[in-house]
């Protein structure tokens, strides 16, 4: 629904751009390079759709061997997956973990992003580098030592351990996402608030928090999406009771043969739909490019 909204939005932009549109179209028809580019994009999308579609079809298939489509449809795999994998519990855990990670990483990351975007102080680049490292390093590299430490303090296998592990890339991610939003707020506005007699706390709660709200929303949503999809760190630190959906999915896949493929696919579809719901929510607040880049796309 959000997607249609935004499409409507881009239509408006398109009509506003009317004078240039026909010119663009003409070039479009003339250039073979454009056809090639669009061909590649369409090829990519068709394969992507088939990839997701095959999972979807298989999850509803009664039996599917060596034919274009299965020879019958059923929803029994869903109920089976729901029961045999204890999906309700897994989903609840997933939501709890992601919610905690979002909340804590925002609480830690937003003030830090403010200081890093605004201030210069001795050792700033060192601090910034320390925040950048968890994003630049493969999760396995720091995940294994982290899991070891968590085992040492008997936190591994618990939900606390999973939350702590997922915070490691999330806090830096909040900081990086928030930085352009902080930079957008004119620092003179803070000065003006102080000249009006507002102290540090009042400046933050009355002036900055409302102005940074869009950025905080964006960062929160992005961390939510990433945490639900985060496999490695959760995999390394989770116990049987603290698995998130993606880890449960992995276990059911790697234990294939014990259960029917369709049952695994049903679980995959549940995971997919959860991600898509999150994605739709996310795209209400952020630009698609922002999901990968901290650069705000110019309109």
């Amino acid at each position: 629904m959000a997607v249609t909204d935004t499409l409507a939005g881009s239509d408006v932009a398109g009509t506003a751009d009317e004078p240039t549109a026909p010119r663009g179209k003409r070039r479009f028809v003339a250039s073979p390079a454009a056809w090639l580019v669009w061909g590649v994009v369409v090829f990519f999308f068709v394969n992507l759709a088939a990839l997701v579609g095959s999972v979807l079809v298989n999850s509803f298939a009664r039996q599917w061997f060596g034919t274009w489509l299965p020879n019958g449809w059923t929803t029994k795999w869903y109920s089976q997956a729901w029961d045999s994998f204890g999906l309700l519990h897994v989903i609840v855990v997933t939501l709890q973990v992601s919610g905690l990670v979002v909340g804590i990483s925002l609480l830690i990351g937003v003030p830090a992003s403010f200081v890093l975007a605004r201030r210069s102080f001795p050792g700033k680049s060192l601090v910034f580098f320390a925040f950048l490292l968890p994003i630049m390093m493969p999760p396995i590299t720091y995940g294994i030592p982290l899991a070891t430490v968590l085992y040492k303090y008997e936190l591994a296998g618990t939900m606390t351990g999973v939350v702590l592990a997922n915070l490691v890339p999330s806090v830096p991610f909040v900081i990086l996402t928030m930085t352009p939003f902080v930079e957008q707020v004119d620092r003179r506005i803070e000065d003006a608030a102080r000249m009006c007699g507002a102290g540090l706390t009042a400046t933050f709660t009355r002036i900055l928090a409302p102005l940074l709200l869009p950025g905080i929303l964006a960062a929160g949503i992005l961390v939510l999406v990433r945490t639900v999809a985060m496999f490695e760190l959760t995999f390394l630190t989770a116990g049987p009771d603290s698995q998130t959906l993606v880890v449960a999915l992995y276990y059911s896949m790697s234990a294939a043969g014990i259960r029917a493929q369709q049952s695994v696919d049903a679980m995959a579809v549940i995971y997919t739909s959860m991600m898509l719901v999150l994605l739709v929510i996310a795209l209400r607040f952020v630009n698609p490019t922002q999901l990968v880049a901290r650069v705000k796309e110019e309109q």
Partner: peptide, 30 residues
């Protein structure tokens, strides 16, 4: 914030989320 001076900035630095009234009243509220 305790000097009791007023300042007018080059780019005005108005609080964009507050109305004119809100902007003017801000210091008194503080």
């Amino acid at each position: 914030e305790k000097r009791g001076f007023g300042m007018v900035f080059q780019n005005y630095a108005l609080f964009p989320h507050l109305t004119v009234r809100g902007n003017v009243a801000f210091g008194l509220r503080m």
